[in-house]
Amino acid sequence: HDTTVHINGLRIEVHGASEEILKWIEEAARRGVEAEEIKRWVEEALK
């Protein structure tokens, strides 16, 4: 999927993410993980 995830006011563009990654992002956000940190993880995961 190409999608934009909104976390604590930060937009994260996610290209080619699976449902699993999207669920993981939402879970991390709920746990209060910094949005910048999530963004870094997602970029690494999608390389």
Rank of each mutant, 00 (worst) to 15 (best):
H1K: 12
H1W: 13
H1G: 11
H1S: 13
H1C: 05
H1T: 12
D2C: 12
D2Q: 15
D2V: 15
D2R: 13
D2A: 15
D2H: 15
D2I: 15
T3V: 14
T3L: 13
T3Y: 12
T4W: 06
T4E: 09
T4V: 15
T4C: 12
T4I: 15
T4Y: 10
V5L: 12
V5N: 03
V5Y: 04
H6I: 15
H6M: 12
H6F: 08
H6V: 15
I7K: 01
I7H: 03
N8D: 12
N8M: 03
N8C: 08
N8Q: 08
N8K: 04
N8F: 01
G9A: 04
G9L: 02
G9M: 02
G9F: 02
G9P: 03
G9E: 04
L10V: 14
L10N: 05
L10P: 01
R11G: 08
R11N: 11
R11W: 11
I12E: 01
I12H: 01
I12N: 01
E13R: 10
E13M: 07
E13I: 11
E13G: 05
V14P: 02
V14E: 01
V14T: 08
V14G: 03
V14D: 02
H15Y: 14
H15I: 13
G16C: 05
G16A: 06
A17S: 06
A17F: 07
S18R: 05
S18K: 05
S18N: 10
S18P: 07
S18H: 06
S18C: 03
E19A: 13
E19F: 14
E19Y: 15
E20T: 09
E20I: 09
E20Q: 11
E20L: 11
E20V: 10
I21H: 02
I21V: 09
I21Y: 02
I21C: 04
I21K: 00
L22T: 02
L22P: 00
L22N: 02
L22D: 01
K23W: 08
K23N: 06
K23T: 08
W24H: 03
W24M: 05
W24G: 02
W24D: 00
W24K: 02
I25F: 02
I25K: 00
I25W: 01
I25D: 00
I25R: 00
E26G: 07
E26T: 13
E26A: 14
E26W: 15
E26Y: 15
E27G: 04
A28F: 14
A28G: 01
R30A: 14
R30W: 12
R30E: 11
R31C: 07
G32Y: 05
G32H: 03
G32R: 02
G32E: 03
G32I: 02
V33T: 05
V33P: 00
V33M: 12
V33G: 02
E34L: 10
E34M: 09
E34T: 14
E36Y: 12
E36C: 11
E36N: 09
E37M: 10
E37N: 05
E37R: 08
E37A: 09
E37T: 10
E37L: 13
E37Q: 10
E37C: 06
I38A: 01
I38N: 00
K39R: 13
K39S: 07
K39W: 11
K39D: 01
K39G: 04
K39E: 04
R40Q: 07
R40C: 03
W41F: 10
W41V: 08
W41H: 07
V42Q: 00
V42S: 00
E43H: 11
E43Q: 14
E43K: 09
E43T: 13
E43R: 08
E43S: 10
E43L: 14
E44L: 15
E44M: 14
E44F: 13
E44R: 14
E44Q: 14
A45N: 07
A45I: 10
A45M: 12
A45R: 12
A45E: 05
A45F: 11
A45W: 15
L46C: 06
L46S: 02
L46R: 03
K47Y: 11
K47T: 09
K47F: 09
